[in-house]
């Protein structure tokens, strides 16, 4: 069979060019990070003439990279874990109880989806300082509260599509509610759990305003912004810091992209 050029090949070629344009800013920043300042100024588009890592060394020390990444990682990990646990429990209970309380409570959670963060921002920062929560542990607690509405909403939708029979037969066999939830229901909720985990992990890892108000410094995004002001004219260290702060999430994305993209698509249909 001979290879024939079909319209779809033109389309594909065009899409590849478009994808390259999409990637270009990221590639450009990455290239610049490997060059000394003078080279960035003189030949912005050229490949680096030799491997130059001083920019990274500088950005690494100024951002206190290992410590900052660890803090951000722990906040994200515990934040997401807490949201998943509390929200799945609440959503399952709300979906499986058919009283007017459960309906009212569910509506109360759903109500938060349209509230912009700006209206709670001032009182929340006062409250956090009153409760001694202006530290990473406190930030995690705040994320549990702020992440609940979306997670409850999505879990609730999913639980309704899971058949009740398994739980009922386990109850007849004498299993307690805790056993039923953790051993039977939770494994069934895995697809939506993955989706919510991904959405919330991206949200918390990338969040800027709440950490700015509550802990002021220490997360990756905050370190990145502070760095920007300090090194506005030193392009090399600036671009290196951008690469460093984007790297963890990019690596995570490259390895988990199948789940992430599936999760996003699934979450949208449920939401």
């Amino acid at each position: 069979m001979k290879f024939r050029v079909k319209p779809v090949h033109f389309l594909e070629a065009f899409m590849i060019i478009l994808a390259f344009l999409y990637l270009f800013p990221i590639l450009f920043v990455f290239l610049s990070a490997l060059k000394p300042d003078a080279e960035i100024m003189l030949h912005p588009l050229a490949l680096p003439s030799k491997l130059y890592l001083d920019n990274f060394v500088k950005a690494w020390t100024v951002m206190k990279f290992p410590k900052t990444v660890l803090t951000t990682f722990l906040i994200t990990l515990f934040g997401v874990a807490g949201i998943l646990l509390t929200s799945s429990m609440a959503a399952w209970m709300l979906a499986r109880t058919n009283t007017k309380y459960s309906w009212v409570l569910y509506s109360l959670f759903a109500f938060a989806l349209v509230i912009p963060f700006q209206i709670i921002m001032v009182p929340l920062s006062v409250l956090a300082s009153d409760m001694n929560l202006t530290n990473p542990q406190g930030l995690v607690l705040l994320y549990w509260g702020l992440g609940a509405p979306m997670a409850v909403f999505m879990y609730h939708g999913f639980v309704k599509s899971v058949p009740k029979e398994l739980e009922e037969s386990a109850a007849i066999d004498g299993a307690g509610t805790g056993y039923i939830f953790f051993k039977i229901v939770l494994p069934l909720l895995k697809p939506i759990t993955v989706t919510i985990a991904i959405l919330d992990a991206l949200w918390i890892w990338n969040d800027y305003l709440l950490p700015l108000l509550i802990i002021k410094q220490g997360t990756l995004q905050l370190a990145q912004m502070a760095f920007n002001g300090q090194f506005l004219k030193e392009y090399g260290p600036l671009t290196a810091s951008l690469v460093l702060s984007a790297l963890p999430i990019m690596v995570f994305y490259l390895f988990e992209q199948k789940y992430i993209i599936k999760g996003i698509a699934a979450g949208a249909v449920k939401g």
Partner: peptide, 8 residues
């Protein structure tokens, strides 16, 4: 890909 990067 741009979507996983933070706004900052």
């Amino acid at each position: 890909m741009p979507n996983v990067l933070s706004m900052v």
